[in-house]
Every structure is written in C-alpha cells, then in structure tokens.
Simulated assay, not measured.
Amino acid sequence: MGVPGATRPTAVRGDSGRLRPLGSAVVVIGVIAVAVTVAWYVMPKATPDDQPAPAAAVPSVTVEPAITREVTRTVVYELTGGDLAHNLTYVANGGDLEQQAEVHLPWSVTVQRRVPAEQPVFSSLVAQSAGALLCRIRVDGHVVAEKSVAGEGRQLSCSA
C-alpha cells in the first residue's frame, strides 16, 4: 500500500499547473469603492459659501433673592428649686450660648431672638443642683417647655 499523493483541486488549477488567485483582492477593492461612494452621498457637503447657523439667543434670567421676613421673639428662661444651681447654660441673644457657674434660685432671664417669621425659635437651658430643679421656657408669653428633676447632682435639660 502506498501513500496517496497530494492532488490539487482542478477548479483552481491554471494552465501551467499553478494555483491562480480567487479574486479576493478584487472583492476587497470593490467593497472599499462601494463604501467610499455611499459615504460621499450620505455626508453633507460644505462649501465656502456655507455659513454656520447663528446661535439661538438665550434669554437672561434674573433671580431675585427670597425675602424672608424676620420677627423678634421674647424668650424667658425660669429656673426654680433649692438654693443654688450650678453649670447653667442657655441660648442667649443672637443664638449665642451663655454660661454661669452658679446662680441663686429662683432665677430668670429674658432674651430677644431675631428669627424668620415662619421658623420656631430654638431655646435651651441646662443646669445642675444638689436638690430639685424646675425649668420653664416661655416664648412670646406662651410656655413651650417645662421639666423638673429631683436628686443629688442631677442634671436638668429643658429645650423647645
């Protein structure tokens, strides 16, 4: 038995026995030519006479600042109980914190706070005592917070 010999397909064999090209180069050149032609017709053509379209005018918008009406609130802090209160802290005029190391009871202070009309005023009082403590916060005459504690070294926190 022998090894079969390699034979070339007869469809691609030329006169001299060599293989001839199948025309793949011609096909690639044809595809490129078609692509260039399609692009030539599809893409817009610019001429020197063409002017770019003028940009649309954007209207200017003026934003007016919001007008916030402010009011002055009267806040009264009251602290009652034994003889003394220690480490008293409260929100004073302008929203600043005011601190006093020791005050004699009963104790009271009135502060003025300027706030937007639609916003409640934040008020807070913190103190310690050796006995019972009662705090009350009034805003414009209305009681907005009231709290009490009893016992040695207790801390009272009252806020609205």
Score class of each variant (00 low, 15 high):
D96T: 10
V103S: 10
G5S: 03
P44I: 09
Q155D: 01
L84N: 08
T37I: 07
A6Y: 01
G95N: 05
T110W: 10
R20S: 11
P9G: 11
A150D: 11
G151E: 09
A117K: 05
A33V: 14
Q112A: 13
E78K: 15
T10S: 07
D49L: 10
A39S: 14
Q155W: 01
V71C: 01
A150R: 04
A11N: 10
P52Q: 07
V91A: 11
R136V: 15
L156C: 13
V76H: 06
A150M: 07
R113N: 07
R136F: 09
S108H: 09
V31N: 03
I137C: 06
A66C: 03
T110R: 15
V34Y: 02
V103L: 03
L134H: 14
P4C: 08
I137Y: 10
V126G: 04
E152V: 09
P116K: 00
A101S: 03
P54W: 03
R154N: 14
A160W: 10
V12T: 13
E70C: 00
A101K: 08
R154W: 04
Y41L: 06
I137Q: 08
T89K: 08
L97P: 00
R69Q: 10
V91T: 15
G94I: 00
P65C: 06
V58K: 02
A56M: 05
L133W: 02
T80M: 14
G94Q: 07
A85N: 01
N87D: 15
L22K: 01
Y90F: 15
H104N: 06
R114Q: 08
Q99K: 14
N93L: 07
W107I: 04
L156A: 09
Y77P: 14
A57L: 03
V109T: 15
A66W: 05
P44A: 03
S60W: 04
E98H: 13
A46H: 06
L134E: 12
E118W: 05
E78S: 11
I32R: 06
N93M: 06
R20E: 14
V42P: 13
G23H: 06
G2D: 14
P21M: 06
A35I: 12
S129L: 11
V143N: 01
K45Q: 15
C135D: 03
G5A: 12
T72V: 15
V111I: 09
L79G: 08
A55R: 05
E98I: 01
A25I: 12
L88G: 02
E64T: 07
K45F: 05
V109D: 03
H86E: 03
T68K: 01
A92V: 02
R73S: 00
V103D: 07
G23W: 07
S108A: 09
S108N: 13
V31W: 08
V76T: 09
T62R: 13
K45C: 02
R73Y: 08
L19W: 05
H104S: 09
P59Q: 06
E118R: 05
A57S: 08
Q99R: 12
Q112W: 07
D49V: 05
